[in-house]
Write a protein that binds this DNA or RNA. Structure first.
Length: 288
DNA sequence: CCTTGTGTTCTCCG
DNA sequence: CCGGAGAACACAAG
């Protein structure tokens, strides 16, 4: 489940790999719901263009192209992967590549980008929730404008975060998950940030003290910063653009640890409930 | 039935 | 009756 730290890891890695590369051609695996004509149009719009920048807003990747008015959006949703394979990884004789123990393309490969340096970029997505989409500049800017505070940008200040929380009666976890308030937080980092901040996920945001808002703000910054340093969390599906798993999984304190002893207070038991429509993990001893 | 990210729809309240 | 907020639902597929 790629969230901000995972998508940012992919962005930083891919940026170094694809910048300046030309897209020779794109192969899209046909699916029932997408007519051939649409796929052909998608392929034609990309062929011959260069990657000029790789941006991210929230969990959305944006590949900028050299015509300055088309942008390739990639959303990985739950199970999407973007894997870059250098031309020398090709398996003799053909179109298959080896990435660690896996052969690409796999049954989950949805699209293959062939670059002019012989490298390939594979978009895999077992559940097919993710998407690739080409938009123009106006559409891109409209979309970006909908996102809330970016935890990695200078605009992510305590004052701005407090303003985003101000007067909201809904539970605090819903605020964290709402991309229009804070961009990029998903279920894993919402639970982890709330645990670090000592706040129960179902607390009404309006009841949070200034001190709690400050703790939550700091918790979001620290958990996201650390997760990026550890190159993300692999829960079941996530790998980076080289096919490596993330290393933050071993640092998770609450997510997917229900029934286990809390690693912070060493007395509480991690419980699991449903908050904001999502599976929610917390420690009643650490969080109030 | 479950899982999560996101877009849509519904309901409530002032 | 309108608008906004928030909750609930729908959908993707394994």
């Amino acid at each position: 489940m790629p969230e901000l730290p995972e998508v940012e890891t992919i962005r930083q890695d891919l940026r170094r790999k694809v910048l300046g590369s030309k897209i020779q051609h794109v192969e899209v695996m046909p699916i029932k719901t997408s007519p051939r004509q649409k796929l052909d149009h998608f392929q034609m719009q990309l062929a011959g263009k260069f990657f000029t920048e790789v941006e991210r807003v929230g969990k959305l990747l944006i590949f900028c192209l050299n015509d300055l008015d088309s942008f390739l959006l990639v959303h990985l949703k739950m199970t999407g992967q973007l894997i870059y394979v250098h031309h020398n990884a090709i398996i003799a004789g053909g179109h298959s590549f080896k990435v660690f123990d896996k052969t690409l393309p796999s049954s989950h490969t949805r699209a293959i980008f062939t670059l002019d340096n012989g490298a390939k970029l594979f978009f895999n997505d077992s559940r097919r929730f993710g998407y690739l989409k080409i938009v123009d500049r106006a559409q891109k800017e409209g979309l970006v404008g909908k996102y809330g505070l970016e935890p990695l940008q200078p605009s992510f200040t305590l004052a701005n975060f407090a303003a985003v929380c101000a007067g909201k009666k809904t539970n605090v976890k819903a605020i964290l998950l709402n991309q229009e308030r804070v961009a990029g937080i998903g279920n894993i980092y919402a639970d982890e940030a709330l645990h670090r901040a000592g706040i129960l996920p179902d607390r009404s945001t309006a009841t949070l003290s200034a001190r709690e808002i400050k703790k939550l703000f700091a918790a979001i910054q620290s958990v996201i910063g650390e997760a990026i340093r550890w190159r993300g969390t692999t829960f079941n599906n996530y790998v980076d653009s080289a096919g490596n798993t993330g290393n933050f999984s071993q640092h998770l304190k609450v997510y997917d640890r229900s029934g286990e002893k809390c690693l912070s207070c060493k007395t509480g038991m991690i419980e699991k409930t449903r908050v904001a429509g999502r599976g929610t993990h917390f420690c009643k001893v650490c969080q109030k």
